[in-house]
Design a protein around this nucleic acid. Structure first.
Lengths: 216, 216
DNA sequence: CTCACTATCCCACGATTGCGGGATTGCTAA
DNA sequence: TTAGCAATCCCGCAATCGTGGGATAGTGAG
């Protein structure tokens, strides 16, 4: 089994030391460096890229999220685990969007932390259960709306709407569908009627936001 | 500690029996029922709502995903764990959007399955590592687009665009912002220029899809 | 002090869209 | 069979939108 090189960014000395000790105490892991701030994270990682990065989310100078963005864009292959004391919703998603693959609270037991490092190294995405649930809910957010509201568009109307959502004009839709301009107008009228809107833009926005056409 | 009532939907007799045994063998859990198809899942659950539902994703008649939708809309409080042999990307996200909070492969070891049931019951979202990574990547893939393309809209232009995305017409935007109709037109012209589009609809679609305004 | 940029306003022309009709065909369920 | 619905086509009118001009004023960098 390969040893896993780990680099830490955290402004708390005690936490840095604790994790350093934890990592050095286990043959499976090697500490590739530990830093109190992420200002030169790119230069640091360039010298000797680690297998996994542990990143504190709250740091002075360069925040953990900014650091993640930089690291992820320079070294997309290096997985990053965020560490935090709070599981504030916004920070979670900012981090994930920035490129982090794991998100752990700092009260995570040491054994679980090591397990998490192993997990990202092997292509997983460790999260505390509460974080995982937040992520899941993110997918469901509009589902109730979508399910409850049914505008029962006809198949043909959905087809027209799809083209409109793709930014086509009536003319272009007509050409695309092999029907007349007038027919497209008629379909559109009914679509606007059914969606309770009065412009193409409103229809498109509603369609996308409520995922009326299933894709995305 | 409360016992956790579990209901199973799975068309495979052997799996149903295996899980039934597993659940009954542990005092912490109680089997609330096991069914080979989900055709009457709502009626079944209405009689005596369980704490957790295990749902096979591939079933005849009513698919697991359809069942999840029904259950989730009737009993939003009951957490559902999907079980599957394959971790095909599409099915994962369909399930999550439909309302499942956990997603496990069927080769999950029994101990982990029980742990997962406990986890959803306590507000977590258990997933196999490979699934978790897929979910994470979903958040990241759009970020690169957003970061790479910068149309450097002026603050005022962004403001106008925001209103357009909300479905307002030029007139309404003018009223809303306390400026002239003509000014809105001018701003729009520049916006379309910068976004390389030639209609309000295209601009709105591009704005939403590439998350140019940060929200959502 | 220019130069560039932003924000504001104005006009005119043509294209597109929204809305109000009306009409024919074909299919299906009552 | 009759009624309803989806899909197709047509017309006209008013409103809105897209485009190409032009104009003024403030701000900040050089």
């Amino acid at each position: 089994m390969n040893t896993i090189r780990v680099v830490i960014f955290d402004d708390s000395n005690s936490i840095r030391e604790a994790i350093s000790l934890l990592i050095d105490s286990n043959e499976e892991f090697v500490l590739g460096g530990s830093y109190a701030d992420a200002t030169h994270c790119i230069e640091v990682l360039e010298v000797d890229p680690p297998d996994v990065v542990l990143m504190d989310i709250d740091m002075p100078e360069v925040t953990g999220i900014q650091a993640v963005q930089q690291i992820h864009s320079h070294f997309p292959a290096i997985p990053i685990i965020m560490l935090t004391v709070f599981d504030h919703q916004d920070k979670v998603f900012e981090s994930l969007c920035a490129g982090a693959v794991g998100y752990l609270l700092k009260n995570t037991p040491p054994a679980r932390l090591l397990e998490a490092i192993r997990e990202v190294y092997e292509g997983g995405a460790p999260m505390t259960p509460s974080i995982a649930r937040k992520v899941m809910l993110h997918f469901q957010r509009n589902e109730t709306i979508t399910a409850s509201e049914d505008y029962h568009l006809s198949p043909r109307e959905k087809e027209v709407l799809t083209h409109l959502v793709n930014g086509l004009s009536y003319k272009m839709v007509a050409a695309q569908m092999g029907i007349t301009y007038e027919t497209v107008r008629t379909h559109s009228k009914k679509i606007y009627d059914k969606l309770h809107v009065s412009s193409m833009t409103e229809a498109v926005v509603k369609t996308i936001n409520q995922r009326l056409l299933g894709f995305l």
